[in-house]
């Protein structure tokens, strides 16, 4: 009968199928976890310094041919180094902005952002003030309208009085009729003035 320990080993190895080993392995555990080679960095350095493959240690080249990890390192590092060289060449064709320009743009943007942040409470306050003004104007207009209606009722009562007081009633009615446009005008001013002030201030 096969015990659990015996079955687990190969299964683990299958699960870690992508992990390769390099150089002589001591045990199965080392085989599974060895994902780098001791000479890997030497190869990377040789490629980075342009010594690879002709000007580097011949033993290093021989090792890279035999070691699977180092073979991958060579394939990838050579391709990426060459691409990086091309990218640097591209950027040297007057593409890169100067340090001064980058600094200047950054400072302008920082300043604009600081101004925007500083102005935010002011804008909120202006909005609240505008809303309050509109509300107040509406309230005043309502009060004015109620008082106009009250004056009309007073006029009607006066009109219903006897003849001796008729002259007074007619005089009062005339006064009320003349006062009505004045009251309406006052209400309109109260409504428009805060709005006008708000829009003038918000333009600044």
């Amino acid at each position: 009968m096969i015990g659990p320990r015996q079955t687990r080993g190969p299964r683990r190895a299958r699960l870690r199928g992508g992990v390769e080993r390099s150089g002589p392995a001591v045990g199965s555990r080392r085989q599974a976890t060895n994902v780098e080679c001791a000479r890997e960095q030497d190869i990377v350095d040789a490629i980075a310094s342009g010594r690879w493959p002709r000007a580097c240690d011949p033993s290093l080249e021989a090792h890279a041919a035999a070691c699977e990890i180092c073979r991958d390192v060579v394939t990838v590092a050579v391709a990426l180094r060459e691409d990086e060289f091309i990218a640097r060449h591209e950027v040297s064709a007057a593409r890169l902005p100067s340090a001064g320009l980058v600094w200047w743009r950054a400072t302008i943007r920082a300043r604009a952002e600081a101004t925007r942040v500083a102005e935010r409470p002011l804008t909120v306050a202006q909005g609240i003030a505008g809303a309050c003004a509109v509300g107040l104007a509406c309230g005043l207009a309502g009060v004015a309208w109620q008082s106009v209606q009250r004056f009309q009722r007073v006029g009607e009562m006066i009109a219903g009085l006897d003849a001796s007081t008729l002259q007074l009633a007619s005089a009062s009615a005339v006064i009320l009729q003349r006062a009505l446009p004045l009251v309406l005008g006052l209400g309109a001013c109260l409504l428009i003035a805060p709005l006008a002030i708000y829009f003038v201030l918000s333009d600044d």
């Binding site: 640097r88 591209e90 950027v91 890169l96 340090a99 001064g100 980058v102 600094w103």
Partner: peptide, 17 residues
Amino acid sequence: RVFYERTARPVWAYLSR
């Protein structure tokens, strides 16, 4: 300025690729 001169090219190459 010094930092930019030293790093801008590799950063641009990285971003570009």
